[in-house]
Amino acid sequence: MLSIKNLHASIDGKEILRGINLEVKAGEIHAIMGPNGSGKSTLSSVLAGKEDYEITEGSVTFNGKDLLELSPEDRAREGVFLAFQYPVEIPGVSNINFLKTAINEIRAYKGQTPMEAKDFLAMVKEKQKLVELDGKLANRSVNEGFSGGEKKRNEIFQMAMLEPKLAILDETDSGLDIDALRIVAGGVNKLKSKDNATIVITHYQRLLDYIVPDVVHILYKGKIVKSGPKELALELEEKGYDFIKEEVGA
């Protein structure tokens, strides 16, 4: 589904991604861990199409398409979804209106007619339940005045509504209380299917108790330096990043 080869990206002349290789197949869950500033959010932004980054080398293929050639909105329409580490507030635009616009734009891209209002509302109800999102939040302006945890939950609600093929969750677990963590993870698991894939970026092994990854990658200074089964996360939690540094001889 997703194939990243030797990806290099820099910002303001500073190289941040330094040769990333990653293969994600449909039905898989990958976890990416790594110390602060190692480039996790940069990788997700680059995949989502943020224009600030310059791709200096490498390629990204998504379902046979050259992802880097696509505009950010077309990537979303092709089924890429990024749950932001820091979701943005859009005052005055209701969550519902925002999502309706997004869904209909995606449908238009696929040559489909806009969704019927009643189908849309039924979907909102269903997905709200799935991520146990307070109905009031759905009607409020996008993320405006939401608590940190509410913003994260809203990201997962959006994901549920947009039904992406590839979801990238950038530290969706940070800022969530224990119950919210379980609910969000539960949502992700319910949305899992053999046709979609998820990349979970996290600092904590705890999340991986709920969302069980097929592979864990460790990103360090812009490179994936180690990949392994879910036990790798446990090892990391125990030993800290020092053991990685030693291993890669940094």
Binding site: K50, P72, E73, A76, F84, V88, L99, T101, L162
Partner: peptide
Amino acid sequence: FYCKSRGIDN
């Protein structure tokens, strides 16, 4: 960018 990442054009 947030809007675009949800499929909404500029």
